[in-house]
């Protein structure tokens, strides 16, 4: 969107082409309030956090001095932390495709102006405005082993519902279902916005050619919204890496640590056990993992772009 800066004469060095008016330090006042918040509440804590991760700082026992890489070394030997990394990655792997797939599916079905579509869109987006605690309260009642909604339904057929809260293999998938139920609205809306950008003429041409719906989908629609698919995937990876509330409130990380994500580990290390250095080190690892995953995805997206 922004024009390249060579449009301006050379004598005004590094002058921004889109700027209006004189280059003066007074203009910095526009960004001053934000920069103050940015520096004090983001840059400083970020630096402090990096510093903390190399310290032995236990809130209750006091400050024990710098320890080099010890916090990181301990993390790599901490079974619960490694488990939380594994859980988080597994959660991203099972939830992101669900978000992309189901979001796209719903968007394709609801991409018109009919009242029916608008009604369904409200339903699928509506749950996104609820706070995580309401969502978990509702779903704990659904999953409740002896008297939950699932068990009530299964009971009608004389079956026993799977117990998502106490079965190791089902805990994370159970949380993934809740999460998809909660915030499928965002990917659906992003896909809808992208679909509406596709010119109608393209489809009309395809209709004349009598192309099957599947062919239209694969050869027209999907390529046209490829960038949005990558965008949604990146957004969801970043969001789902930050899984916390649902796991904390539904399974409390259990059973047997099967659903404890990294953020919950940070929370527990930092705000339950008050080992601030240790928690800060875990935060840095999460940060690096998220950056890595997002960059990998963008790189993959770009590869496809080129091909």
């Amino acid at each position: 969107m922004s024009a390249p800066s060579q449009a301006r004469p050379v004598r005004v060095a590094r002058r921004d082409a889109d700027a209006v008016g004189r280059r003066t330090a007074w203009n910095a006042l526009f960004i001053a309030p934000y920069m103050l918040a940015f520096l004090v509440l983001l840059v400083v804590p970020l630096g402090l956090g990096m510093w903390l991760s190399f310290q032995d700082y236990d809130m209750l026992a006091g400050y024990g001095g710098p320890v080099g890489w010890e916090n990181y070394e301990r993390l790599l030997g901490d079974r619960i932390f490694l488990g939380s990394v594994r859980n988080t990655i597994w959660f991203v792997i099972i939830s992101v495709p669900a978000f992309v797939g189901l979001g796209l599916f719903l968007a394709l079905l609801l991409n018109d102006d009919s009242r029916k579509s608008s009604f369904f869109r409200s339903i699928f987006f509506g749950s996104s405005v609820l706070s995580v605690t309401i969502v978990t309260l509702v779903w704990r009642l659904v999953y409740m082993p002896d008297r939950g909604l699932l068990q009530n339904i299964a009971g009608m057929f004389g079956l026993t519902a799977p117990n998502f809260m106490t079965t190791e293999a089902l805990a994370l998938p159970g949380i993934a279902i809740v999460t998809v139920w909660w915030i499928i609205g965002l990917p659906m809306m992003l896909f809808l916005a992208a679909l509406q950008q596709i010119p109608k003429e393209v489809y009309e041409a395809a209709a004349l050619d009598n192309a099957s719906r599947w062919r239209v989908l694969v050869s027209i629609t999907l390529p046209a919204i490829r960038r949005t698919i990558v965008l949604v995937a990146v957004i969801e990876v970043i969001l789902q890496f930050q899984l916390f509330g649902q796991a904390n409130l539904i399974t409390n990380g259990g059973p047997n640590n099967a659903s404890r994500p990294i953020v919950m580990f940070i929370y527990e290390a930092g705000f339950r056990d008050w080992m601030l250095g240790y928690a800060a080190a875990a935060s840095q690892i999460l940060f690096v993992l998220m950056l890595g995953a997002a960059m990998l995805q963008m790189w993959i997206g770009r590869q496809k772009d080129g091909g």
Binding site: F38, L276, F287
Partner: peptide, 21 residues
């Protein structure tokens, strides 16, 4: 550039020191 780089920082990366501050 600094601000744009800030887009990559997740809340969890700073929450522990922020709480102390």
């Amino acid at each position: 550039i600094l601000v744009i780089a800030g887009l990559a920082v997740p809340e969890q990366a700073i929450i522990v020191p922020l709480h102390t501050m």
